[in-house]
Amino acid sequence: MLNLLRFFAKNLPFFTWLLLALVSSVLLFQRNPYQRSVWFGSANAVCGSLYEMSSNVTGYFGLRQINEDLLVRIGNIEEENLMLRQQLQRYADADSVLLVPRQYNYQIAHVINNSITSAENYLTLDKGENDGVRVGMSVADQNGAIGIVSKVSSRFSQVISVLNPKLRLSVCLKETDTFGSLVWDGKDPAYAWLEDLPRNVRFQEGDTVITTGYGSSFPRGINVGRVVSAKDASDNNFLSFRIELFTHFDCIHDVLVIDNRLRDEELQINQ
């Protein structure tokens, strides 16, 4: 017994390392980012407040680019709005079309921390449970999809970014509706892959990729990116596309948190 204790005492540095390395490994190998405690992520009160302070300064960077993107977006929406108005005019008598309840609710939030350099990237937003943000809500900005809320504390929330291999987003080609999953390969924050497409899919370079609305987070039709090239995976029957993402992940400041009011109902029926 004494010998054992002496052995421990002599190798104390090693055993300290072993114990702490084991603790780290346990944390490391919890696979599911949704199951971790909010304390392990950047949405906790301490990290959140610090990031909020620093974003008060850095929030002014890159505003010219954002302003331009916003104007383009407003232009598109204006155009679409006008078209829809004209169509609606034709149905003006049948007022039943106006009674469709609003399924999605949009809320503005500010990004207070963002990373694009890690293998797994997350963002932190300055809105939390108190503002009605819940786990599973989708996040987008004027250019396109950004990610899904994975953690909320009372004042902050953490978003798992499209630039994170743990997120597989259900997306489709706008023209043909063929769907697959969007996955990031960890290399370039401007590109991702659209995987699991059937081989016979018709496509052109430059085709737009949008969200499908499956999975009850994103509404259908949020822009994601455009097809750059196709890659033939010889080992299976699927095709992959390299996608240029519309979202400038290095320059995100203000985002929309999208709440699907029917989410719980949709999830229930999918179980």
């Binding site: 540095p13 090693f14 300290t16 390392w17 702490l20 390395a21 603790v23 780290s24 490994s25 346990v26 944390l27 490391l28 190998f29 919890q30 980012p33 971790r36 304390w39 392990f40 992520g41 950047s42 906790n44 301490v46 990290c47 610090l50 990031y51 921390n113 990373s115 890690s118 797994e120 997350y122 953690k151 953490q158």
Partner: peptide, 20 residues
């Protein structure tokens, strides 16, 4: 560091080991 980058265990493991 892990708390700030939302990667539990990653930096903790590497830092523990380098200090050893």
């Amino acid at each position: 560091l892990d708390m700030f980058s939302s990667t539990p265990g990653l930096h903790a493991f590497a830092c523990t080991t380098i200090m050893w």
